[in-house]
Design a protein around this nucleic acid. Structure first.
Lengths: 222, 222, 222, 222
DNA sequence: CATGAATGAGAATTCATTCAT
DNA sequence: GATGAATGAATTCTCATTCAT
């Protein structure tokens, strides 16, 4: 499902009237499966070493090919990063939008968003880790403007839900609401830095424990 | 005060057997104040752009000198990073050790550690941000082994306190203790990514709100 | 008809001693018409962008195929260039030789050569443009030695005619004869840089005007 | 003297309000003499091999340094080309403008322009040769827009003078005036391809002979 | 202390070319 | 005949670092 914040990134056909021969046949010829494979490899390395510290050669090594060969599939190192992040965000918003459209109460919405977030971390661990580390400075570049768009929509969704919860009396009113927002937000996403798919806890189980802490605190109630 | 985890980092000579002689006597002559100034500038840029993405020229520009001139003050870009991080950790542990030596109860210890952490974030924002972003992959290098040491000591302090709290019945026993540890740890440190010194809340005030959330949760108690 | 200056350019085997065997039987199987088409396309692109700046992919794009597919028809990019130039020169010399064999007077010979030249420009505009831009540095390579041969034969024909004209008293004797040669030669060939076939003037008309200027000058005779 | 067509290419200081440290200290630090030296070398190689076919390493070799070292002096290979061409055009127009401002008759203006052109060829042989070979396709790029500007101003000056000459009855009226323009223009500039400074003829002498041919033709007047 | 001019080891990227299908 | 996927060498450019002045 198309989400409004995701800029349309033309992949295959850009033309329509262009004199045929002009389209840059360069990139994106390859089969989607191979692209996916290579992007998964790249994401893993980016997440582990950081985007800048990752050489194209390293990715190619990991994929069992030569550095130059990657350019048959992708325009540039940056476009790999781009595709990794935008694919992740598209799927994330597919999930979030479904949650937000469900018309749940504030507490249930927060619960559902947290759970959905851990599911995304489970599915896109590498992309999430990259997002955490790189999004801030990438957002400056026009190409990655959608990161800013997403961040804003994200804030609106979470902050709005928290405010609704305070208004409804289900969340404490004595907290700085923006501080609370950051607390909840970070609480969830930082998990990407240590989470390993296939561990002993399912994403849902982790979500449950996190929610328990965030909602009820870690102190024993006297 | 020297802390046990901080390995003695020789500035000039790293060897141990070669008396001296050939060493490039160049570095580290400069006045300590100038060093501090330059390191502060470097830390700011490292934090903003990431260590790898930061060029030595950029730092020099910011300091109003030419890239080569930095090498009068420092051996290398890496040694700047090293000094920034180790200085920060030394001060952090000065504070933590004082807290841990005070013999407080588990809840009070957690409160004191969180408060101390926000004070460190206030004082070393840039260094903390760098630490967050870079420490994981730096820890591989022998030179930055102290990062691993610190991390372990850190885990022992926090995790131990939490366990003591569970045993004492002041923290909930129904939570996965390691998950809880990560939750609290991340909750505090991630703040460095958005915290700006001189904002409307003092570190102590932020600590209080965070503690309130972490300990009691954000949901209203019925 | 084979012209003496055109070295016999073996297509398949360039050696002379190795019988055959290992040769990549690939190339030059294609139908002559397809070859021609592709060479015309290539010539157009070479002329427009320069040989070096032209990628094999660009040519393939323009021909509606993939870069690799060109290698079914040609050994290499260089061999395309080679064939374009040698074909042009072969035809040029067919024309020139006919003129030179006609036994005309110096002035009529010059007129006929100029006219023939404009006809060649009309027919091989792209090849002429390529020749102008690239021949000087290509001439170094053994493969393109025939460019040097052609240039020398060319000089002999034109310079000789001019000298004969001076001796006969139909051309001015007060001019540096080599300077005059270059003047006339360039005067004709540079036209390839702006000439467009199918324009308002026929090659013969352009030749007439050029000749009028070259022979009589642009100033009004008092 | 500043000429209107020459876009102002900021060299040293771009700022004024920019936060100081931001200015890209990268390039153009070097002493003007060294820059000149290197540009002269580069121009020579560009002229001989073509811009595209010239590697940065080749230039560096010729200059006795490593390829990377060139980047202390220049931003890029392209910026070298840019500086070579714009310097040449600036000087050319200094000369042309002086001629055009002198208020001479059409014939004398043409004579002066031709003479000035040969002087420029004498002084900037390499730049002229580069201009001839590369200007057409460079003109597309915005960075080299001034080439188009110059070409237009050039055409206006020469074509206008020719038209004035026809009107005044000093040039023949029976010639296609645009054809004549190209004839004269090319006649002069193509000389750059064979001219070698320090040869047996001075630029003025060559100009005189060329003018004699262009104005009076090469045929003996009966 | 700082500058100016380099070095040299990569880095990303390009491109002609190959070859199995 | 043509495609898809690679290779591998070359190219431009970057940057930490050095060092004589």
């Amino acid at each position: 499902m198309a989400t409004p914040w995701a800029r349309p990134r033309p992949r295959e056909s850009d033309n329509g009237q262009v004199p045929a021969a002009k389209k840059k046949t360069t990139t994106a010829n390859a089969s989607p499966e191979r692209r996916r494979e290579l992007l998964d490899i790249a994401a893993e390395v980016f997440a582990a070493q950081g985007y800048n510290a990752t050489t194209v050669r390293r990715i190619a090594d990991e994929a069992g090919m030569l550095a130059g060969s990657l350019y048959y599939h992708f325009d540039s190192k940056e476009s790999m990063l781009d595709e990794i992040l935008s694919t992740f965000l598209t799927e994330l918003w597919d999930g979030y939008d479904a949650v937000l459209a469900a018309g749940l109460g504030p507490r249930e919405t927060i619960e559902a968003l947290v759970t959905e977030s851990f599911r995304e971390i489970d599915r896109h661990r590498a992309a999430v880790a990259i997002y955490q580390k790189e999004s801030k400075h990438l957002a400056d570049q026009p190409r990655f403007g959608y990161l800013t768009d997403s961040r804003q929509k994200f804030e609106k969704a979470w902050l709005g839900t928290l405010e609704r919860g305070v208004a409804d009396g289900v969340f404490r009113a004595d907290l700085d609401i923006r501080l609370t927002y950051r607390f909840v937000r970070d609480t969830v996403w930082v998990a990407a830095s240590w989470y390993r798919p296939g561990g002993q806890h399912s994403p849902e189980e982790i979500a449950r424990q996190y929610l328990s802490m965030v909602l009820d605190g870690i102190a024993v109630r006297e």
